[in-house]
Computed example of a mutant assay.
Amino acid sequence: MLDMVIEQRRRSLGGFEVGRVLPFAKRRMVGPFIFFDHIGPVDFPPGIPNNVDVRPHPHIGLSTITYLFDGEMMHRDSVGSEQAIRPGEVNWMTAGRGITHSERFEEARAHGGPMHGIQSWVALPEADEETDPAFDHYDAGELPEFNEDGVRGRLVAGQAHGLASRVKTHSPMFYLHCELDTGGRAQLPDGYAERAAYVVRGAVEVAGERHGPGQMLLFTAGKPALLTALEPSLVMLLGGEPLGERFIEWNFVSSSKERIEQAKADWRAGRMKLPDLDNGEFIPLPGDPEHTPANPMS
């Protein structure tokens, strides 16, 4: 049984589009997931301009999860990481008390090619909101995989169906990539208060209703959660335990509005370190002019 269906809202990021799903006015979070963007799909020509890249920007109070179905993206951050991500791999960045990072499309700039994936954020428990920033990369082969009854997939993070991902998380959750043959049936794990499925491509049926790409299906707590593929389909399953109210403004997430105001002031004043390899570029706070922040750190 479904409580709600959320439709993605398409928006341009300058050189490509994303489908924003979370946060949604009537449902801000699913478990710890507070942000969910469907990147592309897009096919970049060679020589795309530099302004397609996502320049350095800050985060607090969350972890970002980047997961690709196609293409390649380069991650750089203020704790010294430089890591390309490719399909089936995981880049997991924990902002904690503060981190900055950029996302570059260097491979596509050189050779052209596709870009397709999901970027999501999970809020941190209050006890971990001010943890030290960190970055971890996991190869596809490090993640548990399954293949049965017309469903092939990978456990990106958390625990589900007797599997446990080695990806370090901070609260109970699950995040699954599922490829379904026609007639394949995917069961969402029991034992979590909040659960959802996002249809990336194809079509699925839940309780006699058809659902297609760009829709997030929110399942009723405590009830069986099952979907059946009406054609070959790609679906992301996600959920976990709620963490309580969180505030979100720009790239900042916190249980405290005052902490977000402090983060805004820190970014505006140049008190948040920028990635060493990004030559001082940054995205200004929304509403601020394009200028070098006071006393930029490097």
Results as ranks from 00 to 15, higher is better:
residue 270 G to T: 09
residue 115 M to F: 15
residue 59 H to N: 03
residue 19 G to S: 11
residue 45 P to T: 15
residue 93 M to A: 09
residue 133 P to A: 06
residue 229 A to P: 02
residue 43 D to Y: 05
residue 280 G to Y: 07
residue 179 E to I: 11
residue 200 V to Q: 11
residue 50 N to H: 06
residue 99 I to E: 07
residue 117 G to D: 04
residue 31 G to I: 14
residue 100 T to M: 13
residue 9 R to E: 15
residue 253 V to D: 01
residue 148 E to M: 07
residue 93 M to Q: 06
residue 199 V to I: 15
residue 19 G to A: 04
residue 176 L to Y: 12
residue 86 R to F: 06
residue 290 E to G: 00
residue 37 D to C: 01
residue 153 G to D: 14
residue 277 L to D: 13
residue 193 A to Q: 14
residue 78 S to Q: 01
residue 45 P to S: 13
residue 279 N to M: 02
residue 74 M to T: 09
residue 135 F to N: 03
residue 56 P to Y: 11
residue 221 A to W: 08
residue 280 G to T: 15
residue 293 P to G: 10
residue 108 A to Y: 00
residue 13 L to K: 00
residue 89 E to R: 02
residue 250 W to Q: 11
residue 138 Y to E: 04
residue 72 E to H: 01
residue 115 M to K: 00
residue 88 G to P: 09
residue 32 P to T: 10
residue 136 D to T: 14
residue 152 R to H: 13
residue 39 I to V: 15
residue 107 E to I: 08
residue 280 G to V: 15
residue 211 H to A: 04
residue 100 T to P: 00
residue 184 G to N: 03
residue 206 V to W: 08
residue 209 E to Q: 12
residue 179 E to S: 09
residue 127 A to I: 03
residue 172 P to W: 12
residue 51 N to E: 07
residue 263 A to N: 04
residue 63 S to G: 09
residue 195 R to M: 09
residue 132 D to P: 08
residue 55 R to H: 11
residue 217 L to A: 08
residue 13 L to R: 00
residue 282 F to W: 13
residue 220 T to R: 14
residue 63 S to F: 05
residue 239 G to S: 09
residue 12 S to T: 11
residue 209 E to Y: 06
residue 195 R to C: 08
residue 156 V to R: 01
residue 168 K to R: 14
residue 296 P to E: 14
residue 281 E to C: 00
residue 210 R to N: 08
residue 256 S to E: 15
residue 134 A to P: 06
residue 181 D to E: 15
residue 285 L to Y: 13
residue 131 T to A: 10
residue 88 G to I: 09
residue 194 E to N: 06
residue 107 E to R: 04
residue 21 V to S: 00
residue 49 P to A: 05
residue 235 V to T: 04
residue 33 F to Y: 10
residue 46 P to G: 07
residue 84 A to V: 15
residue 9 R to V: 11
residue 79 V to D: 02
residue 182 T to C: 02
residue 238 L to A: 03
residue 8 Q to F: 05
residue 199 V to C: 03
residue 77 D to A: 02
residue 78 S to V: 08
residue 249 E to L: 03
residue 196 A to W: 07
residue 89 E to P: 02
residue 1 M to K: 05
residue 279 N to F: 09
residue 233 S to I: 13
residue 223 K to F: 05
residue 113 G to V: 11
residue 114 P to V: 01
residue 109 R to V: 11
residue 142 E to T: 06
residue 118 I to P: 07
residue 256 S to V: 12
residue 119 Q to W: 12
residue 133 P to M: 08
residue 36 F to L: 06
residue 204 V to G: 05
residue 255 S to A: 14
residue 63 S to H: 06
residue 21 V to P: 00
residue 246 R to L: 15
residue 245 E to W: 10
residue 266 D to I: 11
residue 188 L to M: 07
residue 297 M to Q: 15
